[in-house]
Design a protein around this nucleic acid. Structure first.
Lengths: 106, 106
DNA sequence: ACTTTATGTAAGCATAGACTTACGTTTTAA
DNA sequence: TTAAAACGTAAGTCTATGCTTACATAAAGT
């Protein structure tokens, strides 16, 4: 259940920018920070948050560290979202038939 | 593309709780607030954020207001997540073949 | 017409967290 | 063996935002 961390990780704009830069392939921390409005240490902290959310993985290569997108966090998020589709439609169809205000206790 | 608002909306724990309570069907604002650790006005503010993110829709029924899950925000989020699957795998396969550190400019 | 119920909004406060500068560590190059 | 390059971490600041109390509005009951 890491969808909580994945959500708050991707909620921040600059952190999302860092994450999206990995779309075109793995990159070093320094490269990820280049051209951004924030400092390099800030990017390091963002990468830590992304890693703890299972959204990126890192590998040491020489004196730099290469980051890549990790699918675990993405899958956790996706299955969380998908869990709404079925449930919701059924519950709503029922609510419509009964033509009620609110009834359920949860 | 409202996936930004949807992400920051679902990032907050209590707001997520409110949203998840709609799983079992539409409910009034007051009913959604019952049993929560926060006050009722706080829930109202959360519902506003969820509405602006396209995650819930509301309808006035008598003197109460019924909220339901809106699929727009969920779909925006899902397509955002899905946009990573294809891109990423291709770019990474290439990076693996070339056996490189970081090369791309974006 | 008043009162009660159900809700949203305003203003202010308090904390989480995003950012900075400064420093420590490890690896490569001179 | 110094120096430099690439990175993470610490400590402190500042702002975004989640929360509260108080007030406003609107519908329904008496």
């Amino acid at each position: 259940m890491t969808h909580e961390k994945a959500l708050s990780a991707l909620a921040d704009p600059t952190r999302r920018t860092v994450f999206e830069r990995l779309r075109s392939g793995p990159k070093s921390a320094g490269h990820l920070a280049q051209g951004l409005a924030v400092s390099r240490p800030a990017v390091s902290q963002h990468l830590k948050a992304l890693r703890e959310a299972g959204l990126v993985a890192d590998e040491k290569r020489g004196r730099s560290r290469i980051y890549r997108i990790e699918h675990g966090g993405l899958e956790a998020l996706r299955s969380y979202l998908d869990s709404f589709w079925g449930d919701v439609l059924d519950a709503y169809k029922e609510a419509l038939e009964h033509d009620e205000r609110d009834q359920n206790s949860d």
